[in-house]
Write a protein that binds this DNA or RNA. Structure first.
Lengths: 330, 330
DNA sequence: CTGAAAGCGCTTACAG
DNA sequence: CTGAAAGCGCTTACAG
């Protein structure tokens, strides 16, 4: 952490007090245009940049948001992050990253996030149990730090951005039903994710409405594992439609189904519920519900800036639109 | 940014000075065991956590590293980040994320990273021209901030972690050659990446050594684009082997080749140079050179901690081992 | 081993 | 509109 030019250097060279330099940076309208220009030119000349840490301490605002996630490697996490980073940059917020895995001491992790003095928190971890979520939420509430849930669902009235996964899954299930599919399965995960639970609800609704029995097949996000699962599954079950909570699971299923001699989409319709790059690298290309993950990230960051700055907010529970991308697999 | 209990509260309740509290946190061996225990218990009782910002200002160390990248959404960036975050957490460093795209004012971006007072920088952006790289490097050097290049290659003697892409590609090309393949292409990117240039060198070497003409086909990372490229390509060229700098490009090629009536691997061997999840979701599964991206991230972060703490370092130019994962496409 | 004091580089009332 | 001064919450020589 090296530092060259400070506010004192600028003040000295411009022949004003450091208070004035501070003002031209933070409240330029309060300083005489001439002095302002003078100071501005010295700032430029010396390449002065205020020390963000000192500024943070003095102003009690770090202009930094904390991003809490389970794991960066999930396809959706990366896109979410991209949306967040773009907007954070636009509004001049720095971003600190924190990982929180379910096995850690959640209390400790949240307290260390708080100790880092972030002005707001974006919470992307969708792998916690309701009890763990409550713990997280309580600690953040105690610290009085603005919070937005980004693509995470929680019943209480916490600011959140997402899409209506329930409705989306309901709709796409209806679509398969309308095509005459009867043995439609939902491939979900063994591990619980708040979002997948809503996908399951939508699927169940549509099936029941059609007088059919909902059948949820739980597998893993690990391809080596779900390959074996699907191999077995295809031997023992009649399927003519499969909707997967993740695209990678859908693609993996397509591969196994084709190996087992089925035709996609002739024998089995397959749908992904994300629309990641996997969908267009699959053969046949995967029809998807498109979850606008980048937008969810961008909008949650924007919402967080509003909350941090006490701007007027229409709604703190934002539901973004989704659409269905028809391709070859259904 | 809310704050509850400060070092003063702890000092007061424990009946010691704040200097002593500070010492139990930073130099516990310098304080009397009894006082230490007393202070520790008060810290625990009050749930005290030192304000990271105040600490940063006073100690002139932020215990934060800056991560500069082009874009999080690339498959490799996410894994790189995962490795970095795990090690950063282990060594108690916070991480700040910065994006730097080629069209931005590079000088400004680097200066804002410097202003954020990071103790070290991990540079992951592999999309800059040599001139831009030089600009970046110079500014970071001026600020005297420790730097490690993570999976980025640059000729000068800057600390860096990577694998020997040239050798890896040379080897895999040789393998195809040994199988009797003659019309081997390298599918690389139109855009320049430092790493891909080394892949190209290895490929060229192997081909020339075999008395064959190296043929580099440049396409895009965008699937919609490379689909069309490959469709054309397959009409106009004889190919019996294709090595792609990215797995997604390899998979996309496989799809087009099969659609065009070729058999993989019977007619054409296809190789990926990353080993991402795309490789096992492809049909047939993609044979790859495995680039241990997570490890590269982890090792670069570890190297950076050593540099920041002035620990002894064997080498600041680390080359990690790679291996070839034989699957179905070659 | 412990405390008083200075200082890190800013911001922000408070006077003028 | 501008400056002097206090203060943000810590760390770190310096005495003792």
């Amino acid at each position: 952490m090296s530092n060259n030019v400070t506010i004192y250097d600028v003040a000295g060279k411009a022949g004003v007090s450091l208070a004035t330099v501070s003002r031209v940076m933070n409240n330029p309208e309060k300083v005489n245009p001439e002095t302002r220009e003078k100071v501005l030119s010295v700032i430029k000349e010396l390449g002065y940049r205020p020390n963000a840490i000192a500024r943070g301490l003095a102003s009690r605002k770090s202009t930094t948001v904390g991003i809490i996630l389970a794991d960066v490697s999930r396809a959706s996490a990366a896109q979410l992050l991209n949306g967040i980073l773009d907007i954070a940059k636009k509004y001049d917020y720095a971003t600190k990253l924190f990982t929180l895995s379910e096995n850690e001491d959640i209390k400790e992790t949240i307290r260390s996030v708080v100790a880092e003095q972030v002005d707001g928190i974006l919470f992307l971890n969708d792998e916690l149990s309701p009890e763990q979520m409550e713990l997280v939420l309580n600690h953040i509430k105690d610290a009085q730090i603005p919070l937005v849930l980004s693509n995470v669902f929680y019943k209480e009235n916490i600011p959140a951005v997402r899409i209506d996964y329930e409705k989306a899954t309901y709709e796409i299930t209806k679509e398969l039903l309308n095509k005459g599919r009867k043995n439609i399965y939902l491939a979900s995960t063994v591990r619980k994710y708040s979002i997948n639970e809503y996908k399951e609800l939508g699927y169940i609704d549509a099936m029941k409405e059609a007088g059919l029995e909902p059948k949820i097949f739980r597998t893993s996000g690990d391809v080596a594992v779900n390959k074996l699962h699907f191999e077995e599954f295809l031997k023992n079950n009649e399927v003519d439609g499969l909707i997967a909570v993740r695209d990678s699971i859908a693609v993996s299923f397509i591969n196994e189904a084709i190996k087992a001699g089925f035709k996609v989409p002739e024998d089995i319709s397959v749908i992904g519920l994300q629309n990641t790059k996997y969908a267009i690298l699959s053969r046949p290309n995967l029809t998807c519900v498109d979850t606008p993950v980048y937008d969810i990230g961008a909008v949650s960051m924007r919402l967080l800036t509003k909350i941090m700055k006490h701007e007027e907010i229409e709604s703190t529970r934002v539901v973004l639109p989704y659409h269905i991308v028809e391709r070859e697999s259904n």
